[in-house]
């Protein structure tokens, strides 16, 4: 084992890590936004909307993420051509991001739904009694409380996504794992680079996990 080649490779690896973080942050933001919308649909009194969201969630939770990523890689350009009528290159990054957002939304939806349901019913009644519309009740009273309650779960799910972003290697995107692997291959030290990558994933995820636990304790008080 010779880890000496890793230090000179750092700038390239950092670029990979930047890509990983970018995918994660944007994926989480988009996923939470879409997931919240889906949660509101699932909880709505309109049976059509509720069913539609239910189908979406169950579908995406029943297929592997890897499949979604490859599928979107081929489907998104195709769909765009069907809509705009011309070839629109989107690139691996965009199609991966769309895949993450749509896939994670199914999981975030369930977290948000549980969060909303954990708020006492009377809060909705009190907000309504003050003349707020349904949208205002949700936006001003229910969701702010729900998000506070579910922050630890959302962060935990984000850590999972941090690891899952490594699946983008299938479409050739240079995230942290992929850049470590390819660099190792080129230099001829694949094991050292993979071990190093594993250590980095472990440290980041483990430390983040511990921080979430700490936060959970603080929020519980």
């Amino acid at each position: 084992m010779d880890f000496s080649a890793i230090l000179p490779a750092m700038p390239g690896l950092a670029e990979g890590m930047l890509m990983t973080l970018k995918l994660m942050v944007l994926g989480v933001l988009g996923g939470v936004a879409l997931g919240t919308l889906l949660a509101l649909m699932r909880l709505s009194h309109n049976p059509m909307l509720a069913r539609l969201a239910g189908l979406y969630v169950n579908y995406f939770r029943s297929i592997p993420l890897l499949l979604v990523i490859t599928w979107f890689y081929f489907a998104v350009p195709f769909l765009l051509r069907a809509i705009t009528g011309e070839d629109t290159p989107v690139g691996a990054f965009t199609s991966c991001l769309v895949a993450f957002v749509m896939f994670e939304a199914a999981y975030f939806c369930e977290i948000v739904r549980a969060g909303i349901q954990a708020i006492p019913k009377g809060q909705m009644g009190a907000a309504q009694a003050l003349g707020m519309s349904y949208g205002q009740c949700m936006r001003l009273v229910i969701l702010p409380q729900a998000f506070r309650k579910m922050t630890p779960l959302l962060l935990q799910q984000s850590i999972i996504l941090f690891q899952d972003t490594s699946l983008v290697y299938t479409v050739g995107l240079m995230d942290f794992l992929n850049s470590a692997r390819s660099r190792g291959d080129i230099i001829g030290q694949p094991h050292e680079f993979l071990i190093f990558a594993g250590l980095v994933y472990f440290s980041v995820s483990f430390i983040a996990s511990q921080l979430v636990k700490l936060l959970q304790k603080r929020l519980a008080v």
Partner: peptide
């Protein structure tokens, strides 16, 4: 105006 048994102030 309505006042509830369990107050229902907004805790946040």
């Amino acid at each position: 105006g309505m006042v509830f048994q369990s107050f229902e102030l907004f805790p946040h």
